[in-house]
Computed example of a mutant assay.
Amino acid sequence: MCQDIADRPAAHPGHAGVGFGFGFGFGFAMIPAMDAALGALPPERAGSGSGLLMTVRQFGGPLGVALLTAAFLPNPRTGRRTRTAPAVASGTPDA
């Protein structure tokens, strides 16, 4: 399956720009978010708070990638793409 994806030409070259934009924005958003979360803790608890935040980031990133991959990549058994999670959950067929 990975080779199939690698062999296809880029169908949507604009996705790279969108991905860059999201990554750039996420990078700037995380700094104040972590500052606010750690600023609410007393200084003696900053180490454990930082560790917890990094654990959540390390777990949440791959979980989000897995969920998006499951929702939008073709099903290996049928070869059909899923359109949306609600359509899959309700059992409506893909068109």
Rank of each mutant, 00 (worst) to 15 (best):
M1P: 14
M1H: 10
C2F: 05
C2E: 10
C2Q: 11
C2G: 15
D4Q: 15
D4L: 10
I5S: 09
I5K: 01
A6V: 12
A6L: 14
A6Q: 06
A6T: 10
D7A: 09
D7W: 12
D7I: 13
D7E: 13
R8M: 05
P9V: 03
H12Q: 03
H12S: 07
G14P: 07
G14V: 03
G14Q: 03
H15M: 14
H15S: 11
H15P: 13
A16I: 12
A16T: 05
G17Y: 01
V18H: 10
V18S: 11
F20L: 13
F20C: 08
G21D: 10
G21E: 12
G23E: 02
G23M: 06
G23H: 07
F24V: 10
G25P: 05
G25I: 06
F26R: 09
F26P: 14
G27C: 04
A29H: 03
I31F: 09
I31V: 14
I31R: 09
P32L: 01
P32D: 07
M34H: 13
M34R: 11
A37L: 07
A37M: 03
L38M: 08
L38F: 02
A40D: 12
L41Y: 08
L41I: 06
P42C: 10
P43F: 13
E44T: 02
E44Q: 13
E44L: 05
R45S: 14
A46C: 11
G47T: 15
G47C: 12
S48G: 09
S48H: 08
G49L: 08
G49Y: 09
S50T: 14
S50N: 10
S50K: 09
G51L: 14
L53Y: 13
R57F: 13
R57S: 15
R57E: 13
F59Q: 11
F59A: 14
G60A: 14
G60H: 12
G60V: 13
G61C: 10
G61H: 08
P62S: 04
P62A: 06
L63R: 00
L63D: 01
G64W: 01
G64N: 10
L67S: 01
L68K: 00
T69C: 04
A71R: 02
A71L: 05
F72L: 05
L73G: 00
P74H: 07
N75P: 06
N75C: 02
N75A: 00
P76N: 11
R77G: 04
R81I: 01
T82M: 00
T82F: 06
R83I: 02
R83P: 15
T84C: 01
T84I: 00
A85N: 01
P86N: 04
P86D: 09
A87E: 15
A87Y: 10
V88S: 04
A89R: 07
A89S: 05
S90R: 06
G91V: 04
G91W: 05
T92L: 02
T92G: 10
T92Q: 02
D94L: 12
D94G: 15
D94R: 13
A95Q: 07
